[in-house]
Amino acid sequence: MRNKLTILLSLLLTLLVVGSCGKKNGGDEPKKIAVIISTLNNPWFVVLAETAAEKARALGYEAKIFDSQNNTALETDHFENAIASGFSAVLFNPTDADGSIVNVLKAKEAGVPVFCMDREVNSPEAATSQILSDSYSGCVTIGKYFVQQMNKKGKYVELLGLVGDNNTWARSKGFHSVVDNYPDLKMVAQQSADFDRNKAMEVLESILQANPDITAVFCGNDAMAMGAYQALVAAGLANKVKVFGFDGAQDVVGSIKEGKIVATGMQYPKVMAQTAATFADEYFKGKRDFPKKMPVAVEMVNQQNVSDYLEVAKN
């Protein structure tokens, strides 16, 4: 009888010890949230990361930022470390829409919810929720303004972002869903400039040699819009060709005010980051019915309303 009691007590003790080892952040310690970001070599993503971490801390959690340096293998290491170190949620900006799926699934298997910010992974089931700019709708609005500014006719060029990036095509499709209804608007070239300012300048310089009579350039982001504008200045066409961008970068908003760029789409990285942290908080409190994708409105900035956005762009 005494032996049985000893065995029972030992078993209970073992269960208690094992249970406490498996428990993440037990006791009064706050839960930990990992903020894993594609790259911190770009100020836009720094804002995204810092805002997510700040919001997580404001909600009472520990937060740590991991820089994937645009390297999916390094991102995998961050996920493995975060899971092993007992992080309870990941606020995530993926390096690759397809390549990052496996990392999100690893976290899911470990019971760690992942909330994507700004960039998505191409799996509807992997992440708990993906909070993304409504690039398509933003470019519908820009497309409408583009047609109005062009009086429904003329030749134009489209500079695409990275062809493997979902945002590139969401923006292009939104734009064309309006512009393609006007047959007198002719797209003479559609080329990728990888979201890069210098590449956009080179690509447009080359296009202008064969098409000096274009009257507009639609760019998939603001860096390319600035590169396109530089190419037009160099070719002496800056006053004849209208440039449209997307992002809401400070230099482009300033250029809209100066009349150099016609319009852009203002994105809100802080809203995306804060929403992701809030969703994690709600998850810890028991909520499970999150939208698989949550679009964040993109607002068009043009010369009529640019004064409303000068401060927004600074922040």
């Binding site: 409504d134 809100y268 809203v271 929403t275 949550m294 679009p295 964040v296 409105a297 993109v298 607002e299």
Partner: peptide, 8 residues
Amino acid sequence: HALGIGNL
């Protein structure tokens, strides 16, 4: 109303 979040 709006399906997404933000100012619009």
